[in-house]
């Protein structure tokens, strides 16, 4: 099962490599990974998605918690949560396709953020599924380049991941 693991860790050099190293060292996979400092500059928030059954995820969270620089770990998929991924996608856009891409982008509530005579670049945010669906709707033949941020997530309601 796909899980979103959210980690609060010390914003120190080397901390990220310990987290990433742990995954390769213990044979866990990482599908997506995103990391940036939080409102408290001494802390970074790292979100990653991985696949695993309950036992594997339990081991992953325990091993992550053992890392000295890791302050808190949650599996966001355990409760209600919001997840978003940002995609920048560059597509061939000529002739009739220009209007078609514009319409599809509107339907998906994306924005065209750069235009040339033959190319559109679209910005789109949403769940991983939504981004996949957009690429499918446009047609993979049209796509020149895709950049995805990886999943960010936050719990719904009043639950907060902080110190």
């Amino acid at each position: 099962m796909r899980r979103i693991i959210s980690i609060l860790m010390e914003n120190e050099p080397g901390a990220l490599s310990r987290v990433v190293g742990l995954f390769s060292q213990r044979g866990y996979n990482i599908d997506t990974l995103t990391v940036a400092p939080t409102e408290d500059a001494t802390l970074s928030r790292l979100t990653l998605t991985t696949l695993g059954d309950d036992q594997k995820i339990e081991q992953i969270t325990k091993q992550l918690n053992k890392l000295v620089e890791v302050v808190k770990v949650v599996d966001l998929t355990e409760g209600a949560h919001i997840e978003r991924e940002l995609m920048l996608i560059k597509m061939k856009a000529t002739g009739a396709q220009r209007a078609e891409i514009k319409r599809t982008t509107d339907i998906f509530r994306g924005q065209i953020v750069d235009v040339t005579g033959t190319v559109y670049t679209v910005q789109l945010a949403g769940t991983t599924d939504k981004l996949d669906a957009f690429i499918h709707a446009i047609g993979e033949d049209q796509v020149l380049e895709v950049v995805r941020s990886g999943v960010s997530g936050i719990a719904r309601g009043e639950k907060v991941l902080s110190l």
Partner: peptide
């Protein structure tokens, strides 16, 4: 003393 050692190989 190490939670990760518990239920790692045997539940």
């Amino acid at each position: 003393v190490d939670p990760a050692s518990i239920s790692k190989n045997i539940r």
